[in-house]
């Protein structure tokens, strides 16, 4: 009874691992499959195999996949609050998350199989632009959402071109900046 239940859950997680589009989720699902297999070996009175499965399958292989995923670059999208909304961080972030623009950006990264993470940061716009950990900085102003991209990033240029080709169905505008030494310079802020 318990065995067949575990087998069904294993099948479920195996299907989830191939259905998800985020590689990190797939890795964790595979680790869960491996862990359940170890438990099943335990119930079938094969503790030696269970230990090997737990160590190799859900320990070593998971860590190896995670290390491999590290080589695949993760893009960080930073959302900067504007003045008065920074206290309502959660609600503001949900508001941004629901916008069409962010959905399109996510789709852009998903289609190319890049890992992407969205963070809400309490820093000001200039601090965020100076921080090299953020690849794309998003701020909402009165006329819509502005995405600030580094002038030297080819991926972000591709994103900009793609969204501009789609036309005006999203209220997303792009602004490029260039950082030379300590000076931060916006290039053509009304682009788009």
């Amino acid at each position: 009874m318990i065995d067949s239940f575990i087998l069904m859950v294993m099948c479920l997680f195996a299907l989830l691992a191939i259905q998800t589009r985020l590689l990190r989720n797939a890795i964790i699902h595979l680790a869960v499959v491996s862990l359940l297999a170890a438990f099943l070996y335990m119930r079938m009175a094969a503790p030696e195999l269970a230990i090997a499965e737990a160590v190799i399958g859900s320990g070593l292989v998971t860590l190896l996949y995670l290390a491999a995923l590290k080589r695949n670059r993760v893009y960080t999208i930073a959302i900067v609050g504007n003045g008065e909304t920074s206290r309502l961080a959660d609600r503001y972030m949900h508001h941004i998350e629901r916008t069409n623009a962010l959905h399109e950006i996510r789709q852009f990264f998903l289609v190319r199989e890049y890992e992407v993470q969205v963070v809400f940061i309490p820093e000001t716009l200039e601090q965020a632009l100076r921080n090299e950990a953020y690849d794309l900085v998003i701020q909402e102003d009165d006329s819509g959402i502005v995405a600030y991209t580094d002038d030297e990033s080819y991926v972000m240029m591709e994103l900009e071109m793609l969204i501009q080709m789609r036309g005006a169905q999203s209220d997303l505008r792009f602004a490029r900046y260039q950082q030379t030494g300590a000076t931060l310079q916006l290039i053509d802020p009304s682009a788009g």
């Binding site: 030696e48 230990i51 090997a52 190799i56 320990g59």
Partner: peptide
């Protein structure tokens, strides 16, 4: 249960 290989796997992790 266990032994060289399993313990070695943990050390490698």
């Amino acid at each position: 249960p266990g032994g060289g290989f399993q313990g070695g796997g943990i050390l490698a992790s």
